[in-house]
């Protein structure tokens, strides 16, 4: 495993105990320059993970708690008339930061959600006819509650696609929860900083230069094509999804310390990258296996 990455994962795992797999995925998402969506029940450590991750990679971040009365302007910013200069002055919102932590994104109204997601897609915001570029790179880590909970507005399918990965944490293992309970001290997140923001940028550049052979690309295409051809999939994976799979697989390969991508790497990130693109409504009626698992189980990586 790559040493730097190992260090980061170790540090984060001290806070988010027993979730090494999810931490690794979250880091991969960041290295692949993708937005991350964490979905789980309240109290499972979604917010903790996102905060720890942000401080570990040395990013400046703003946190927004999404509520049903949150307005687009609250995130993006507003133009205020200044009496002394007789001019409108733009007050940037929390979105103008390197990392935006959007807590419980599905509690906000669809209008606010789409304002955020549009900004994510275009990397800029327009207020009163003026365009303001966002930080580059700009990341969003959003958390959301499962959709069958009341008082939520599910994210539309077209916009779920903007998140590179969706991960869920689940209950911690017995031993991990025990050690969490034993831990008495308050956590100071600033202690958990591992690398600077500049170092993160070089890591990202390295990830991009990981080699992916034609065989691996064909494997990804085979998986993606299957979702398009088969009757079993109500939604199919878009070309954006195949790019996402490749980027995430490269990041995973880098974290793994490999110089090239193999089908194992693709498989490792595949569920996180594709599940929310294939079945937005958590569980398909009657089906016991997730569609992404179906896809993976259908393609033989040795025959590509």
């Amino acid at each position: 495993m790559d040493k730097q990455c190992q260090q980061i994962i170790k540090k984060i795992s001290q806070v988010v105990i027993g979730k090494e797999e999810q931490v690794r995925l979250a880091l991969a998402c960041l290295l692949a320059k993708g937005h991350l969506l964490i979905e789980d029940l309240p109290g499972m450590g979604k917010t903790t993970l996102s905060h720890t991750l942000a401080s570990a990679v040395g990013m400046s971040y703003n946190r927004v708690q999404f509520t049903s009365d949150l307005l687009p302007a609250d995130i993006i910013g507003v133009s205020i008339f200044k009496a002394d200069t007789h001019e409108f002055k733009f007050h940037p919102g929390p979105i103008f930061s390197q990392l935006l932590l959007a807590d419980e994104i599905n509690r906000a109204s669809p209008k606010t959600q789409s304002a955020l997601l549009e900004a994510m897609a275009e990397n800029q915001v327009s207020v009163d006819g003026t365009t303001y570029p966002l930080e580059s790179p700009f990341f969003v880590i959003a958390t959301q509650n499962p959709q069958f909970q009341s008082g939520t507005y599910p994210l539309p399918e077209s916009q779920l696609d903007r998140f590179l990965m969706r991960i869920s944490l689940g209950f911690p293992p017995h031993q991990a929860e025990l050690s969490m309970l034993k831990r008495q001290t308050q956590i100071d997140l600033s202690d958990y900083n591992c690398i600077s923001y500049e170092e993160l940028a070089t890591l990202q550049a390295k990830v991009e230069s990981i080699y992916a052979s034609d065989e691996v690309l064909n494997y990804i295409l085979a998986l993606v094509n299957l979702s398009r051809e088969s009757r079993d999939f109500p939604l199919s994976l878009s070309p954006r999804a195949s790019l996402a799979i490749l980027a995430a697989a490269k990041a995973w390969a880098y974290i793994d310390g490999a110089e090239y991508v193999t089908p194992d790497h693709v498989q490792a990130i595949f569920l996180a990258v594709t599940e929310h693109r294939l079945s937005p409504s958590f569980v398909e009626s009657g089906s016991t296996d997730s569609l992404s698992v179906k896809l993976l189980n259908s393609v033989d990586p040795t025959q590509i």
Binding site: S230, R231, D232, T288, V299, D300
Partner: peptide
Amino acid sequence: LVSSQTFDVHVEQNLTLQIQ
């Protein structure tokens, strides 16, 4: 022609045999 694993379905659904 390689057949993949099949999945259980309910009555009146489609039984799919996927072949690579």
